[in-house]
Nucleic acid binder design. Structure first.
Lengths: 199, 199
DNA sequence: ACTGCAATACGGACCGTCTCGTTTCTTTTG
DNA sequence: CAAAAGAAACGAGACGGTCCGTATTGCAGT
């Protein structure tokens, strides 16, 4: 009797799991977020609604899991930042990439949906910080610490604060659509941050 | 003769308008935002649903109008920032007040609801910038220009960028609940900003 | 024949529209 | 200058529709 977990039992589980997450991702990226329904996800995934509710308690959780699965795929690459020895150059590269990414409509829709959910759900916000934000921040802080050792950044600087000053303006401008996310803008944020926290 | 618009024709309009906005405000501040429904607003205001739909096209528009009405009441006061002659002191006062305001649960709920809506509705975001954000930013920029004349701020500084660096970290920390909004934190944002844009 | 899942039926909440009968204001008229 | 008639806006709530989250069914694989 398959009293605990059947072995190929889990293969099916995994297949439907992927189908659901992939369908959720596709829908969030192409539709207005209000139009993304659990029923639509189930239909797109070729899955019964019950199969979804068996695994996730809410739409927010699905969307979050879908995004999380994305970042877990790209895990190996994205945990390290470039380190050419010049902090300004490296940060500008990263900030320009971030600005460009946020300007991509499908990605914009996905991140906007995620932000909508985490802004209104403290538990999901905590999970977001733990599973997504913190690992990325740690990678950035590693690069910053290297810069501190190289004398390019105030050794006393609060690195969390540095990251906020660097990223939050970009994030706010994106969220409120209060201005364009140009490469020049990305560069100026790096310049400002380094002027504030420079050695 | 009153041949165009009836003058006290508008009296009942105004009364129901106020009742609706006040009910919307109360509900948003006390309930989880998903539980705020148009039907609940109508019931609380003692008003038919049609009276709401006659005036506003969506729940977002009602919530926005409710907040806007608040800020229009306090119009006379809030358009000017203190100017003691010392920029750091004045900004710290304002930033501490902002941090404290965002820590007030009812206000938190209201602003969170507003941000949820404007993040997903470009048209509403534009109205938000025009009617709420820009006037406040102008008041802040007036104070910053005064500081530029007093030699306390780089005369070449991009004031929009200054405001972003000053406020966006606070906003992001609040939105993502990634840290406490203490007076010390408010102060440190002012310090960082002045180090970046100082003379 | 048993089991796990897709499909779908179901009651409930809320949407946005609509139709009522009533209230409130404007205009007409004796 | 009332009092009556008319028009406009209103509170209430019925209505069909969508989506939610749960319960049931019937088919496919083993």
């Amino acid at each position: 009797m398959t009293y605990e977990k059947g072995p190929d039992h889990s293969r099916r589980k995994e297949r439907s799991r992927q189908a659901i997450l992939s369908a959720a991702r596709a829908l969030v990226m192409e539709e207005a977020y209000e139009k993304v329904t659990v029923e639509a996800i189930a239909a797109r995934a070729g899955v019964g609604k019950q199969t979804i509710y068996r695994r996730w308690p809410s739409k927010s959780a699905i969307v979050f899991a879908a995004l999380l699965a994305l970042s877990e795929d790209a895990d190996g690459q994205s945990v390290t930042l470039p380190d050419t020895g010049d902090l300004a150059t490296d940060l500008k590269l990263v900030m320009r990439a971030t600005a460009h990414e946020f300007s991509d409509p499908p990605f914009d829709k996905l991140i906007r949906a995620l932000n909508t959910e985490i802004a209104n759900d403290p538990a999901l916000a905590a999970e977001y910080r733990e599973k997504l934000a913190q690992p990325l921040d740690e990678a950035k802080k590693t690069r910053l610490r290297s810069a501190q050792r190289a004398g390019q950044l105030d050794p006393e600087a609060d690195l969390d604060l540095v990251l906020e000053v660097l990223y939050a303006p970009l994030f706010q401008r994106w969220l409120h659509r209060s201005g364009p996310l140009t490469p020049a803008y990305a560069d100026s944020l790096v310049d400002v941050t380094l002027r504030a926290f420079g050695p």
